[in-house]
Structure formats: structure tokens, C-alpha cells
Amino acid sequence: MSIMEVKCLKRDYGNGKGVFDLSFSVERGEVFGFLGPNGAGKTTTIRHLMGFLKPESGTCRIDGKDCWLDRPSVQKNLGYIPGEMNFFDDMTGAEFLNFIEKYRGVDSSIRKMDLISLFELDAKGKLKKMSKGMKQKVGIVAAFMHDPDILILDEPTSGLDPLMQNRFIDLVAEEREKGKTILMSSHMFDEVERACQRVCIIKNGRLAAVDSVDGLKAAQVKKYEVTLESEEAALEFANEDLAISEISHAHVTVLVQNNISQFIALMNKHPIVNISAPSQSLEEIFLQYYGGEKGV
């Protein structure tokens, strides 16, 4: 059963900005990755799901209820991490969490304490003086503490260090096992790979693809940066039968998809000094994928 349903959603900001005829749905008990380059319309879509914006046409439904018309009832069972953390600056982290708890009218003190210790959050400081990562932790606790069944997470791990990112991914997996439904936007491929089952990619406000993470992974083009002894050697290496994306001095950047053994064999023939795999952003990966094959 679809828990979240976006149907023919449209909001035109002019200049090709906005969301156009966007439709997708998230099933119960699924972690759904919501991806796309900056300005693609991710946050706009999320604002519609949160009931902050009224659709120009089309509908957004959560749990069968209209996100704009039935806001309070939709929000009852929803947790939200905004893309930007803007709190009441004069409060401390603990005061803010207490405020949200009372404001929602739900006693969530036990789970709040668990989450605070899970993320090693020091909530005593003033929010204004907190680092980005600390603020993010406060936002995470605020979104999860009332134990909602549905979560909308807009770049939830931004600002977190790798250890805390891992803890967050574990938390998401735990929540999924409990049957929660999660929509999560992200920039990091490995994060999405570990957390999500399905992803939807939007570009210029339109749906570019919906695919399982396994499908995306199979189609993933890996990038390797090979350093050779000299510039001449680099040029020689680049002449081999490989997909080359860039040559600069003695560095050659190679794209590899399903032909890793051929790549290794060729590397053995040339004077290689070093090889590295620069981390790829999700956009890069999907732009290679869809840009190359489907011409999105």
C-alpha cells in the first residue's frame, strides 16, 4: 500500500524552475531515496508533502490524507528533518527539544534521552553557538523522538562526521525494520546505497527515473584516476581501448563499467605510479548513467 503518493504535482516558478507533472509513490515499510542535482525541485516537493505549499495542480497524499488540506492530521504521525536547521536561537538544545515535545503534546522523554545518547548530543549549549553537526543532531532528535511512522528527511546527514553518519544509517535501518516508511533526500551514493531500497531521481523538476538501488548499482560507472610516470606515458595509456574522461599531465581519469578486468590488464602494460578512486557524487553517477544511455 502506498504511504506517500505524489500525483501530477506542479508548481511553476518560471525560468524552468519548479516541479512539473511529478508523480511517484513510496510504499509502506520502504526507505525511499529522493535524489537530484541542486535546484532540481527536491525541496519544493518536500515542502508540498509537508503542507507548506499548496500544489498549483496535482495532489500529495500521505497515508491517504491530503497534505495541504489535512495538514494537522498528516503531521501527527510524521517526523521531519528540514534541509536547513533554523531553530529559535535563544534556546539551548535541551530547551528546544522540551519545547517541541510540549508543543506537539506528546510525551517522548524516554526516546528523546535514548536518541541524545545515541548521537552523543550535548544539548546544554545555546543553539546559536552550536556547530553545524550539533544542530543537525538536534534536528534528528526532534524528528525521531515522537516515534512517527512516516519520516521525511531532507539531507539528514549533512554536517555529521562519518561515525555519526553510520549511526544515523543504522537508525534508519532499525526504523525500517519496525515498519516505518522513510523518504530521504541525499547527496552521498554510499549512504543511499546502504539505507534505501528504491530511489527516484528528479531533474529540472521532472521525474528522471525510479529504480531499485541494485539496478542503479549495476549501472554505476566507476571512475579511477590513474597516475603514470610521465605525460607521454599518460598519452600512450589514454590511447588504449578505454573510456577516458580526462587527461591532465600524468593523470588519466578512466571510466569503468563491467570491464574491470580489461582495465587491470591494461594497467599492467603501462608504467603506473598510482591509482585512486575519487569519491563520486550521486549526481555524477546518475548523470553518467542516464546522460549516456537515455539522454535525459
Binding site: F52, R71, S73, Q75, Y80, P82, N86, F87, I100, Y103
Partner: peptide, 15 residues
């Protein structure tokens, strides 16, 4: 303006 309204509306409280 500052965005802190987000938290007031991301709750089961009517506008």
C-alpha cells in the same frame, strides 16, 4: 523569514 516557522508547522498544530 528565518525559517524557524518550519518547526512550528512540522507538528500536528493547525496554522
Amino acid at each position: 523569514d528565518k525559517g524557524s516557522m518550519t518547526y512550528l508547522l512540522a507538528a500536528p498544530v493547525k496554522r
